[in-house]
């Protein structure tokens, strides 16, 4: 699914966070979003997901302007979002969390449970367990798996490696890569974990104080001084 962001400005009430941001993600592309803490990465994700609406500019999905749509309407057009902190339903079982992904939109979707458990075999043994009792890494897998149950065309991820063991981070990155290759799912991923981003994304955009200040292929970004300048590395 092709995503086009054109000159969006967005924030919270009177506070403007994102200013005049534009970028494009091709169908099936993976774009990494980089930047230090507080630079507006999560705000960008919320804006793409519909949790906040841009005050200016447009967001287009396959050419359709979705800037004014609420989160559920965007979800029903094939966007799924894994928020920072994962946002699972702690008092629902793992199975119910996954099921919610399939049924929330109302219309019956094809049941992807077996595929999802194939991507995240960890979850299979835990289906009857309450989601709140899972480890951080398992919760992250559940959040992504639940998103996959909506049968998405575009996945938005906000710092999936946050608070997760390094071995699991590699595993999750590999799985996301596999999903992208196998299903052609477009991915926008916010990440501070540079090895994860560079293994997954082909293109990166860099944020500084709510503005898109640099962009390019991961190769270019890795070799340039952008990393020192905007990421303090």
């Amino acid at each position: 699914m092709k995503l086009e962001v054109e000159n969006i400005t967005a924030g919270y009430g009177n506070i403007t966070v994102l200013r005049d941001v534009s970028f494009k993600v091709n169908d099936g592309g993976v774009v990494g979003v980089l930047g230090r803490n507080g630079m507006g990465k999560s705000t960008l994700i919320k804006c793409l997901a519909g949790l906040i609406l841009p005050t200016e500019g447009t967001i287009k999905l396959n050419g359709e302007d979705i800037s004014k749509l609420l989160p559920h309407a965007r979800a029903n057009r094939g966007v799924t979002t894994v928020v920072q902190g994962r946002g699972i339903f702690p008092d629902l079982t793992v199975m119910e969390n996954l099921e919610m992904g399939r049924i929330a939109g109302g219309r019956g979707k094809r049941n992807r449970l077996e595929e999802v458990l194939g991507y995240f075999p960890h979850l299979r043994e835990r289906l009857t367990q309450l989601a709140g009792t899972l480890s951080g890494g398992e919760q992250q897998m559940l959040a992504i798996g639940r998103g996959l149950m909506t049968d998405p065309k575009l996945i938005l991820l906000d710092e999936p490696s946050d608070g997760i063991m390094p071995t699991l981070v590699e595993q999750i990155a590999a799985t996301l890569g596999e999903i992208n290759r196998r299903e052609g799912t477009t991915i926008v991923i916010v990440e501070q974990n540079l090895p994860m981003i560079f293994s997954l994304a082909e293109y990166c955009i860099v944020f500084e104080k709510g503005k898109l200040v640099a962009e390019g292929t991961c190769e270019k970004i890795q070799k340039s001084e952008i990393l020192q300048e905007y990421l303090a590395i």
Partner: peptide, 15 residues
Amino acid sequence: RALIQNREAASLLGL
């Protein structure tokens, strides 16, 4: 039940 536990997450899934 999902809605009561996390309204935002429920809406992001399409509810």
